[in-house]
Amino acid sequence: MDNNNLTTVTEFILMGFTDYPEWEISLFLVFLCFYLVTILGNLGMVILIQMNLQLQTPMYFFLSHLSVMDDCYTSVITPQILAMLATGKEVISYGHCASQFFFFTFCESTECFLLSVMSYDRYVAISNPLLYTVTMSPKKCWNLVLGACICGLSGSIQRTTCTFSLSFCEDNKINFFFCDLPSLLKLACSDTTNAEIIIVLCGNFVILVNTLVTLIFYMHMIKLKMSSL
């Protein structure tokens, strides 16, 4: 091994299904069915919202974007799993692994922010129904979706940079079926302390902020409902 360059790994081996080769066909069919149901279900919802004029409201606007993000989230992982089960090839390149991790964290974070945006939308609809369509204008809806994507993107860039700035050498066997954070950190041959602190803080920040925002809006909605009784 070259001591001047510890990052010698150019590909990883996904070990998630290697212990059960006899189940590969069955697992392939199961994953394929779930994948098709998810993709077609979300796509059908988006088409229905776009075609039905009665659904042209901010709530369904956000729901359609959540469906699109859910399809993207699923498509980051499942096709790789299907290809692995169909061909028996468990190898994934370093660049593909980094890309998969980046888009996985981006979709995951953006979905969280979109759920917070949807809670805000419901709060506006209940607290001020007469001015709902004015407050939630198309421009504001697009800005909220864009803001959710930017927040998700910034978190994804930070976590991906911290993870793949680590050195990976010799051991390249990921004990999972896609490039997940805990499995990657176990393979790193450099100190992961700083990276883990940043990644954990970033991940917990996203979860905590979105949970608090959602809870606050829903608590206000419950309070408004109770006061109107």
Score class of each variant (00 low, 15 high):
Leu130Trp: 03
Val117Thr: 09
Ala98Gln: 13
Leu114His: 01
Phe102Arg: 01
Gln100Trp: 05
Phe104Met: 08
Cys112Ile: 11
Val117Ala: 15
Leu130Cys: 03
Asp121Phe: 05
Leu130Phe: 11
Met118Gln: 06
Tyr120Lys: 10
Ser93Lys: 08
Arg122Asn: 12
Ile126Leu: 04
Pro129Phe: 15
Val91His: 03
Ile126Asn: 01
Gln100Phe: 09
His96Cys: 06
Ser109Thr: 07
Cys112Gly: 10
Phe106Pro: 02
Phe103Glu: 03
Met118Pro: 01
Ala98Val: 02
Val124Leu: 11
Cys107Leu: 03
Pro129Cys: 09
Cys112Met: 15
Phe104Asn: 11
Gly95Arg: 05
Leu130Val: 06
Phe102Gly: 04
Phe104Thr: 04
Ser109Asp: 09
Ser127Cys: 04
Asp121His: 03
Ser109Leu: 08
Ser127Leu: 07
Phe104Pro: 02
Gln100Val: 10
Ala125Glu: 15
Ser93Met: 06
Gln100Ser: 13
Asp121Trp: 01
Tyr120Ala: 11
Met118Phe: 12
Val91Asp: 14
Phe101Gln: 01
Thr110Leu: 00
Thr105Tyr: 10
Phe101Glu: 09
Ala98Ser: 11
Asp121Val: 13
Cys107Asn: 00
Leu115Ala: 15
Glu111Arg: 15
Ser116Phe: 05
Ala125Ser: 14
Cys107Pro: 00
Leu130Glu: 07
Val117Pro: 01
Ser119Phe: 14
Cys97Ile: 02
Ile92His: 04
Ala98Leu: 09
Asp121Gln: 14
Ala98Trp: 00
Thr110Ser: 07
Ser127Val: 01
Ile126His: 06
Ser99Leu: 15
Ser116Glu: 06
Thr110Trp: 02
Arg122Trp: 11
Tyr123Lys: 11
Ala125Met: 12
Cys112Asp: 12
Val91Phe: 05
